[in-house]
Write a protein that binds this DNA or RNA. Structure first.
Lengths: 235, 235
DNA sequence: ATCGGAAAAACTGTATACGAATATTTCCTT
DNA sequence: AAGGAAATATTCGTATACAGTTTTTCCGAT
């Protein structure tokens, strides 16, 4: 049977497939799976000491949620093409400003304190040149304020492409020059949250997404030139 | 084995669970399932002459997609509470104006002709007092222009809460006074599409969603007064 | 007639097995 | 050495069965 780490959420009420789902999602979100990894239901079942059925259920659920992509030979991390990535930036500009505005009004003092702590950790990690700590701090910061958005449907819509956002972020994160920009932007967002300034929070996130897109395009520059010759408008 | 109606999409490449999924989704989207219906995997399997596994896979997929809600005793149509419905209106205001603007630029002449035909059918159905034809025409109109949105991520985000939108529409559709308003709004949207006027299309859809929310609130009026006393901000 | 508890029925989650489909590897011919 | 065909391996989809959980029904007591 399964040896789960988080026994708090892998309680008696959680089915086997639910537990496997959560464990695999944790791995995906922490970037522990390489782009070339194939998750095969027989192998996952063997790893967790269960039958194929709950493993298959968990993999299929992750695929429906957008974290994995089914192939004829197992499930893999999604490979977004250039066009899909640009579309997600487009979608983020529609959703995230409103989400940030709502978060500015909804974040509790305790949650604000938590964001402050995360920012302190981000500064510390940047000073120490610790890429992983910095990346984790930035992800935690983002996940924390999004968790405070009161509109559940909006939150779910945001969380649904979180894996893609993270994949792009890893790409742009590779350029160390982006680090101070990202941390400074988070600091400004945090300050807007503290002031309960919904407009400033909204504007800052909008800038963030534009800047993120610009950084992505720069990182993708040479391939983008090639794609421009061949790209056709979808639909 | 399965006796599918649409053999064009239920081709040899489609798995059994995929076929069952499509057939059940068709029923859901046409409103053929009552609010109290429970879909149990053994019963669905028996209906389609297959084993529980493909039936269960199809039901689980529909649940992941938001069309069904799992209970301990089968799957049911989702029951949205008042707050969730308002949140979806909020989300629609974020997504649909942009979608309509994109559709205005992307719809082909053939697709525009199709919209014109659907509008003619809507007028005819309204004149004949044919509620079902009118409802179907309105749904087809909406599905058609959304299908023309080139941003796949945005389209998927819109399609994900389509069932909820349809449930609310059935509620507001019950008031016959709303019919001419809806058809007139669709006509104006169609005209904006013809003019390739992205701004007008965007604005019209925004009005549509506001009007839809107002109609929903009116239909929900007395219960809303009661809820106002007890509602707590989620999050 | 009502209520509570026990038993039966209904349903889900999971285990195992089998066949089909797909991908990979191997072998043979040119 | 390369390409194509055949064989093999891998993986998936589905069937059947069993155990556990939840719901419903029935029966006895009050």
């Amino acid at each position: 049977m399964i040896a789960g780490k988080s026994s708090a959420n892998a309680s008696a009420a959680q089915s086997t497939s639910g537990q496997i789902h959560d464990l695999l999602m944790g791995r995906i979100q922490r970037g522990e799976l390489g782009q070339d990894v194939r998750l095969v239901d027989t192998a996952v079942a063997a790893e967790f000491g269960v039958s194929r059925m709950p493993a298959r259920d968990a993999l299929m659920r992750l695929a429906h949620e957008g974290y994995l992509e089914p192939t004829t030979r197992g499930f893999m991390l999604p490979r977004l093409d250039h066009q899909e990535i640009l579309e997600i930036f487009d979608l983020r500009r529609l959703l995230e400003p409103r989400a940030a505005a709502m978060a500015a009004l909804s974040l509790s003092e305790e949650e604000l304190k938590g964001l402050d702590d995360i920012q302190a950790e981000a500064h510390s990690a940047m000073a120490a040149d610790d890429f992983e700590r910095l990346h984790r701090a930035c992800e935690t910061f983002r996940n924390s304020w999004i968790a405070a958005v009161p509109n559940v449907s909006l939150r779910k819509a945001l969380q649904r492409y979180m894996t893609q956002v993270q994949a792009v972020r890893l790409m742009t994160f590779a350029d160390k020059a982006n680090h101070p920009l990202i941390v400074a932007g988070n600091t400004q967002l945090y300050q807007a949250f503290c002031r309960r300034d919904a407009v400033a929070a909204s504007d800052r996130i909008l800038r963030f997404v534009f800047e993120g897109e610009a950084a992505y395009l720069q990182a993708h520059g040479e391939i983008r030139n090639q794609n421009q010759n061949s790209s056709a408008q979808a639909g």
